[in-house]
Design a protein around this nucleic acid. Structure first.
Lengths: 210, 210
DNA sequence: GTCTATAATATGATAGAC
DNA sequence: GTCTATCATATTATAGAC
């Protein structure tokens, strides 16, 4: 068996796993883990249920794989900003990236939200450690900005929670946002307007400046 | 049969329904609708499964009752603020009430979040209409404040989403907040600190004022 | 790797006695 | 109103042929 054939087959297996994970992600984020049957996932991924169980040994196995995929997408933008940057620019950029994630990966956002709400029983190990470290690094950077007088004295932790909650809201509560405004982030005009408003709020607040 | 006996029995029935609803709320908010069995709810409410099904004809019936109870608790503080009030005071008060809700009713917050994320299939009728009206009223008030020069020019809708998301975050993502900070809103000091930070952010932003 | 059974079980719901 | 017994079904998972 040639190397090429080997790798081609491995590629196909990976593709199939990916297709299944994508289908599962979408369904899990809509109906939850227990609200989704393997049959549904199999149908959506265009494979048989038995075949699905050939690629993923169990439902929980599949679920964990979906969560692992999700974490990669989700924690990625957290890598950004360093103390050398201008804070307003860096934070503005972070808000933009997070809002783009809410627009382009709402299923990831929702499933992450669900998992955290339920106490993250299945990924607490993978999540807690890297998350704590990433946040600690950011808190450090924000602290330096404040010391340098480049930001108002704000608790860095609460600032981070604020950035997360305000941006993710447009993915997780998109149903509510749409019910109230009639718009979604898919609408470019609404996206820009949302971005500017979030940035305006976080940078300047709502108190009128004399 | 006397009026008294009638009302006493009705009272008992109501109490039992309430106990079941509370137990169901807690479990549904932790494991989701499909992740919770009637057996679990019955055990938590200290009744038999058959008895539970005597009070609520079906699982969906129970779930809808839980959601209706939840909406009452959840939409209540939205009634507040009118244009005559000072906006900073009114909004500050609203933030406090919402954060108290996140502290005292996290199960309601989480289940509401879950339901919205899944498209609110079972309460869209009860929710959409009153929500849209309430928000429209508030948008009106905020608009008047802005016209009077009492607030910066901010889109009222995005301001409302901001108030919701930042406060509810501490209930829905309490697991994450605790993983990162080691604290919960149950800690009075952390509660006060959180409240002041949210208010500070929304009122003043993070840009240093010269 | 993929398929056809089929096992094993959990769980929502009902019937009928008391 | 509450109980025991039971039905009906959905769904995860496995065995074994091809």
């Amino acid at each position: 068996m040639s190397e090429k054939a080997q790798s081609r087959r491995a590629q196909l297996v990976e593709n199939k796993r990916t297709v299944i994970i994508q289908a599962a992600l979408k369904l899990f984020s809509m109906y939850g883990l227990h609200g989704t049957s393997l049959e549904q996932v199999a149908t959506a991924a265009d494979v048989s249920k038995t075949n699905l169980l050939y690629y993923f040994g169990s439902k929980e196995d599949l679920y964990v794989s979906v969560l692992e995929h999700l974490l990669e997408v989700w924690l990625h933008p957290l890598r950004g900003f360093s103390a050398e940057q201008d804070p307003i620019e860096a934070i503005g950029e972070y808000i933009r990236v997070k809002l783009e994630l809410s627009r382009d990966h709402p299923a990831e956002s929702k499933l992450f939200c669900m998992e955290i709400m339920q106490g993250a029983p299945l990924i607490s190990a993978q999540l807690e450690q890297p998350l704590r470290e990433l946040v600690a690094m950011k808190v450090q950077v924000i602290g330096e900005w404040i010391e340098a007088g480049k930001l108002e004295r704000i608790d860095p932790y609460h600032l981070i929670f604020n950035l997360w909650s305000t941006t993710q809201h447009y993915a997780d509560f998109s149903t509510q946002v749409q019910a109230v405004t009639g718009k979604t982030l898919a609408d470019p005009e609404f996206f820009t307007q949302t971005l500017e408003n979030i940035k305006g709020l976080i940078f300047n607040g709502i108190k009128p400046r004399p």
